[in-house]
Simulated scan of single mutants.
Amino acid sequence: MRGGFLRAGLALAVSISPAAAQFDVYDNPSVLSLPTTLRATVRVPLASAPSGPADTLAALYPRLAACWRPPADLGAAAITARFALRRDGSLQGQPRITFARVPPERRAALTAETLSSLIRCTPARLKAGLGGAVAGRPIALRFVYSGPNQGDRP
C-alpha cells in the first residue's frame, strides 16, 4: 500500500512539474511590464542654475534643463526628449526627440539645441539614492519655451 501511494505521488508530481514551469512569473508576459517613464515639464531657460547634487526627481529635472539655450529666432516652442541615465548621472544611450511643437523651419535648430543641452548638462550630479532609483528608467523631459516676449505660448 505504501509503495503504491508513493509511486502515485511521484507520478502526480512529475505530471504537474512541466506544466507549472511553463507559467513561471518571470516567463509570463502578462506579469512583466516595462519600467514606468518618468515625466516632467520644465520652462526654459532657467533663471538660475541649481547647485549641489540632486536628491529628488523635482531637483533633477531643472539640472537637466539648466544648459538649454533658445536657438536664434525661436518663437514659442515645446519639445520633449526621451532618454535614460546611469547611476552616475551620465546619459545611457542616445537621447531622442519624441515631440516638437515648433514651425517646421525651426525644428532642426530646436532639436539640435535640445540634444546638445542634454549632453552639456550630463553627467548630472546625483545622490546615491536617486542615482539608483533613476538608473536605466526612461525619462521624458518636456522643455517649454514661451518665446522672447514671454506672452507667446506653445
Score class of each variant (00 low, 15 high):
8 A>E: 11
91 L>F: 11
40 A>T: 02
8 A>S: 12
87 R>S: 09
106 R>K: 15
43 R>L: 13
30 S>V: 11
49 A>C: 00
71 P>C: 04
4 G>T: 11
60 L>H: 05
37 T>F: 04
124 A>R: 01
19 A>K: 00
5 F>E: 09
75 G>L: 05
72 A>R: 13
16 I>M: 05
128 A>H: 08
136 G>H: 04
55 D>V: 05
93 G>E: 13
16 I>P: 01
48 S>L: 00
146 S>D: 15
110 L>E: 09
22 Q>F: 14
13 A>H: 03
10 L>E: 08
114 T>H: 06
70 P>G: 07
7 R>S: 04
114 T>D: 11
63 R>T: 07
93 G>Q: 12
151 G>F: 08
62 P>H: 05
99 F>C: 04
39 R>D: 14
99 F>R: 12
42 V>W: 08
125 R>S: 15
138 P>N: 02
86 R>P: 05
13 A>M: 13
72 A>F: 13
152 D>A: 09
118 L>Y: 11
131 G>Q: 04
97 I>P: 13
109 A>F: 06
126 L>V: 03
121 C>L: 00
91 L>W: 11
36 T>R: 10
10 L>W: 11
8 A>Y: 12
60 L>E: 11
153 R>C: 05
152 D>R: 02
42 V>A: 08
43 R>G: 14
135 A>T: 01
47 A>G: 12
116 S>C: 00
109 A>D: 15
43 R>P: 07
25 V>S: 06
100 A>S: 15
128 A>N: 08
37 T>D: 07
42 V>T: 11
127 K>W: 06
147 G>M: 10
6 L>D: 12
5 F>I: 05
32 L>A: 14
55 D>R: 10
138 P>I: 01
154 P>H: 13
